[in-house]
């Protein structure tokens, strides 16, 4: 009997030895927090470091939009800027209506946009927006040229302006009203996000290739925020947005250090971080679909260490 048991054990041993050749199963880690699959999503904005004209729709405040993708574009923004001589607090509301059948191209054939329309009177919180030229710049054969796409509606006020008529209220709403020349007025409320206030802590240095940026902001229960990272061109004293990062609205982000470590200091003097918490959605009114962007922005300038 003992011999039988011994043989059985030896057979089991051999079987186990032969069959045990795989390695343990790996585990796939997935993130499902807030519906964002990644902690951060990085988009390269500027591909030409000489192009300060933001063809893709960024301006120096960090307000990001590419209006030519829509037939209309309505924005309401609360803007703060830190790190300059004077901090800026501003409220800006705009409305642009395109004639999509009337495109404008550069001499080189690149689409710049569409001719705009002024369908009537636009009011934000019952304040009438001004019609101002919608000027865009572009580079053509090394020369900077300006062109006008038409008129757009703008209502903007900075802090300290005694004639400030429009105040962007965070975590509230902005009333939009379009009174067309012909037809019925279109009116709706644009919800506004909670105010975003960020801070930037830099450590290390670019020379040592260990430049780190820890970004903090007041977190909120939203689907996520965007952070635009740009630089200030020394020579032109113009800002150039480099990356757009989408991340969770959880209050903190360590910027992947390679994104900052390679920035040439001889060309750029300052880093610009713009925190954006926004609502972007479509709204139908009077058989027209309106594309709406409501956002809180905080832009911070810091010297490259």
């Amino acid at each position: 009997m003992k011999q039988v048991i011994k043989n059985i054990m030896l057979m089991l041993f051999a079987l186990a030895f032969i069959s045990g050749c795989d390695k343990p199963l790996p585990t796939e880690l997935v993130s499902v927090d807030n519906g964002i699959s990644d902690e951060l999503e990085i988009e390269l904005i500027a591909q030409d470091t000489e192009d300060e004209l933001y063809h893709n729709g960024f301006d120096t405040t960090g307000i990001a939009h590419n209006p030519t993708a829509y037939s209309n574009f309505i924005t309401a923004s609360g803007v703060k800027t830190s790190g300059l001589l004077q901090p800026i607090h501003a409220s800006i509301a705009t409305a642009i209506f395109f004639d999509k059948s009337n495109p404008i191209h550069t001499p080189g054939g690149r689409l710049l946009g569409f001719v705009t329309r002024t369908p009537g009177v636009v009011r934000f919180n019952n304040h009438q927006a001004q019609r101002v030229p919608y000027v865009i710049s572009f580079r053509d054969h090394g020369m900077v040229r300006d062109t006008t796409l038409g008129m757009r509606y703008v209502l903007s006020f900075r802090n300290g302006n005694p004639h400030n008529q429009f105040e962007f209220e965070y975590g509230s709403s902005v009333n939009f009203k379009l009174e067309p020349l012909i037809g019925t007025a279109v009116e709706f409320q644009i919800p506004t996000p909670q105010e975003i206030t960020g801070s930037v802590t830099l450590s290390g240095s670019r020379e040592n290739k260990n430049l780190r940026a820890r970004l903090n902001w007041n977190k909120a229960d939203t689907a996520g925020i965007e952070i635009i990272i740009g630089v200030l061109d020394k020579r032109k004293n113009a800002s150039l947005p480099l990356y757009r990062i989408r991340t969770r609205d959880d209050g903190e982000l360590i910027v992947p250090f390679r994104l900052l470590a390679e920035i040439p200091k001889d060309k750029f003097s300052r880093l610009i971080f713009t925190f954006i918490r926004k609502f972007e959605f479509n709204r139908t009114g009077g058989n027209v679909e309106y594309h709406i962007l409501s956002q809180s922005l905080h832009t911070i300038f810091v010297d490259i260490p």
Binding site: K23, P24, L29, S37, D38
Partner: peptide, 22 residues
């Protein structure tokens, strides 16, 4: 040899390329 554990995952970073896909 069997005392090992492997994890694979998205690094937490993604890149938006020209066609806006992530």
């Amino acid at each position: 040899p069997g005392y090992q554990k492997e994890f694979f995952f998205n690094s937490g970073e993604s890149i938006i390329i020209n066609d806006s896909t992530s």
